[in-house]
Structures are given as C-alpha cells and as structure tokens.
C-alpha cells in the first residue's frame, strides 16, 4: 500500500471550507435549539394538557427516530407534499434544530424539575410571584445543572452535522467524500477526514469532561 498524502495538502482549502461549514451548522443549530428546547420544556410543564401532550409527543418522536431519517424526510417530503421549497442548507438546519431542540427540552425539563420544591417554597414565602421565583431562583440554578448536559449535546451535534452530507450540503464529510471520488486516494482522504474531525472534536470532548467535573451538583 503506497501512500500519497499530497492529495490532502493540495485540497487543504476545501477541507478548511468544509470544516467551517461544520462549525457554522453546529453554532447556528445550537443557537436556535436552546430557545427551541426552552419553549418545548415549558410547554411540557404547562398545566394545559393539550399543550403538554403535543410537546411531549414532538419530543418523544424526535428522540426515538434516527436523525438521518428526519433529514431525508424533511428534504423529500416538505417540497413534494407541503409545497414548501427550501434550500438544502435550510432543510438541513430545520432537521437539526428540531432534533436538538427535542433533546435540549429533556435536559431543561429535568433541570427545572430537579430544583427542590423547597426552593420554590422559600421564594414564595418571601412573597415573590411564581414568575419571579422561576426567573431569579429556579432558572439560574437549573442553568448551572444543565450546562454539562448541554455541552455533551453540543459534542453530539458536532458529529451529527456530518449527516447533512447526504443531502449534498457542503460540510466536511461531503467535501471529503467528494475529494475521495475525484482522486481515488481512498485511504489518505478518509484518514485525513477522520483526523480533522478528531482534531476538532477531541478538545471539545475534554472540555465537556472538565465542565462535568466543575459543575458537579452538590446538594
């Protein structure tokens, strides 16, 4: 097996563009999925049964089905059946945001619920309204608890963006696979692809570990 790594060096700009797209997709998705997750979480905790049930159905559905299938579904079904014409990039973002919002809503809901009832009572006893208790006492604490889980979701999301390559969005995977078919240097290109993801992902994973250690919940 003789290796020729020059194909990697000559295509470095394209790899770079792909990586940037991967990062952009992750950032945009998370930016939209955090409010999305919050909305879903509050809907699930709502006392209006219809609201709670529909939010729960949405969340359970997106968590129990594969993201890759969700992306295909969004891509093929929306234009054909609902007459919605979206670009591939938009479709990818929509699919990712729905999926990650569902996971985030679980994280937020668990965080809010985990704050002991005593905190609520203490806030109310001082005379705060429910909204004030939520805003000043419960939510800040919940955010500290959810930060590690959100960070883990971020790392997953980063990897999930690779799936948008299947609908020809030019992320790192798409770019790398394209270069592979053009150059026939299968081993070098695929290994480079894995290595670039590794270089981006490994530090993030270690950062998440640090976050978990730092924000360990002490009752």
């Amino acid at each position: 097996m003789n290796l020729d790594w020059s194909v990697v060096w000559t295509n470095l700009p394209r790899f770079w563009d792909g990586a940037l797209m991967t990062i952009w997709l992750s950032v945009v998705t998370m930016a939209l999925a955090i409010p999305g997750g919050l909305v879903l979480a509050f809907m699930r905790l709502s006392r209006v049964r219809l609201v709670a049930k529909s939010a729960t159905a949405f969340v359970e559905f997106f968590r129990a089905t594969p993201l890759i299938l969700q992306i295909y579904w969004t891509y093929y079904v929306l234009p054909a059946y609902f007459d919605i014409q979206l670009s591939q990039l938009t479709t990818a973002v929509v699919g990712l945001v729905c999926n990650i919002s569902a996971f985030n809503s679980e994280t937020f809901r668990a965080g809010i619920v985990s704050i002991r009832l005593g905190q609520w009572n203490a806030g109310r006893a001082i005379g705060m309204t429910d909204a004030q208790v939520m805003g000043r006492i419960v939510l800040p604490q919940a955010i500290m608890r959810v930060l590690p889980a959100l960070a883990s979701t971020w790392v997953s999301l980063f990897k999930d963006t690779s799936l948008v390559s299947i609908i020809s969005v030019a992320d790192l995977s798409y770019v790398a696979l394209k270069i592979r078919t053009e150059s026939f240097r299968i081993f070098e290109v695929l290994t480079a692809m894995a290595a670039i993801y590794w270089m981006m992902g490994y530090p993030q994973a270690k950062l998440v570990d640090w976050l978990h250690r730092r924000y360990k919940v002490a009752e």
């Binding site: 990897k159 963006t161 690779s162 799936l163 695929l190 993801y197 992902g201 993030q204």
Partner: peptide
C-alpha cells in the same frame, strides 16, 4: 474520547 470526537458516518465509511 476519540470515538466521542469522530462521527459515526466517518467511522463507517473508513
């Protein structure tokens, strides 16, 4: 930690 960093798609294709 490496498996946490590399997407499954990449692992499968490789």
């Amino acid at each position: 930690d490496s498996m946490r960093a590399i997407p499954l798609l990449v692992v499968l294709v490789w």
